[in-house]
Design a protein around this nucleic acid. Sequence first.
DNA 1: CGACCTGTTGATCGTGGTCAAGATTAGTGG
DNA 2: CCACTAATCTTGACCACGATCAACAGGTCG
Lengths: 239, 239
Amino acid sequence: MGFSNSQESHPADLPAALTIADSIRHHNLPGAFTEPVAYAKEQSILSEGELATDIHIVVSGAVRLFKMMPDGRRQIIGFAFPGDMLGLSLDDRYLHSAEAISPVILRHMGRRQLAALLERDHGLRKALLAWTMTELQIAQDQMLLLGRKDATERLSSFLLTLLQRRNHSTEDRHLPLAMTRTDIADYLGLSMETVSRTISLLKGRRLIRPLADHSIELLNVPGLRDLAAGNAIAVQLDP
Amino acid sequence: MGFSNSQESHPADLPAALTIADSIRHHNLPGAFTEPVAYAKEQSILSEGELATDIHIVVSGAVRLFKMMPDGRRQIIGFAFPGDMLGLSLDDRYLHSAEAISPVILRHMGRRQLAALLERDHGLRKALLAWTMTELQIAQDQMLLLGRKDATERLSSFLLTLLQRRNHSTEDRHLPLAMTRTDIADYLGLSMETVSRTISLLKGRRLIRPLADHSIELLNVPGLRDLAAGNAIAVQLDP
DNA sequence: CGACCTGTTGATCGTGGTCAAGATTAGTGG
DNA sequence: CCACTAATCTTGACCACGATCAACAGGTCG
């Protein structure tokens, strides 16, 4: 879930960052997860406050994780893609809700079974700690974005973290957007109209090119990086 | 660092939430930390991007953790009080900066020594995982606050989490504020003028009473809870 | 006691939200 | 496969919340 915008660095003596799915594959834990379960687009996977019976791993598709306020305001906390985990929580209730953005396939595992595995498998413990710390870092970057960045900076940051996430074969600047404008808005703390306007603005400045199939081509990654970091001066408003 | 606004729930089979300091005391790890080190008010403790050589435990005083943008915009990621840890990171660089808000006393421990302790001590590993997950939960609550709450809701949430943090002997509604208005503003994603105005507003509605010594008395906790949750309708704008 | 820092309050402005009207795309069924 | 409908997206006009600029008050410390 979520994305980090920080520069990557070399892992030292603390556990390295792998996806949980990687880790479970790597540590060869057979039969830990159920068979794949399919969810339709827009289907609810779990809800904030519910009893946290299971954790889930995304096999395919995309998921949004979010919190709601009583009057309907929504904050998307992150997105989950294949390899990502959802539903982990310290207490026995889920911390946020999750819905399928596209058709999704998940595997899940009982909470007590995870706890038992963790008791046995040192590598898995390390992987879980690494995952949690990575998520924390992502969340803290997002706090800076939500608290202090303007709409253009938010959009640029979002696109770049998506690019990094999908760590494309180095020079593929083509981003498929699984989520709607409304989802992006609720992730970036904006209205969907502002997201739309800001995309048009970046398009006008030749930084991106929105394509017909809900995907975006990044035409000027360094320019986007300047914007995302808040060096707005460095980017020309050329004709 | 930081605070959680979520309702507390019963810990289940995953590790319980203790402060790291508690855990180290509890697990009886002698000589793990250095002797206490004093920092003056406003003194820098560590800086984002620096080599992460040590982790620190707050013995006394208050610390702000923050990220800066190149043009000086600041987002405070959390505050650290006695018993809290700072400086933990997956890679070898600090993720954010830390400064003493008041005179502060810290103990620290080398990164490799922590890693060695973690290899040996199962309980400490659990405590560290619990700590990280608690911080993640706090950060996600803060994402909702920063992305979707208005100034009044932010202030109310902040005061309530402070109250909960300092888990006062049940009925003490008296909050000493260690930080300035500017710090609160940079934590809540507001300007310091808006923080000041919002405090005056809550004071006008008889929800709080700011005292002379930088502390605030909470006069109507249920009312503040309604505001914090976004049930603004439930609160009267009485004369 | 005076200088400075922190906080309060007022006046004005601007970014982004809201409301609204079209345009485009996707979905559905004949 | 196309026609019709519905959802998503774009763009425009206006508005409001909170930012900025500014003046002043209170508190703190040398």
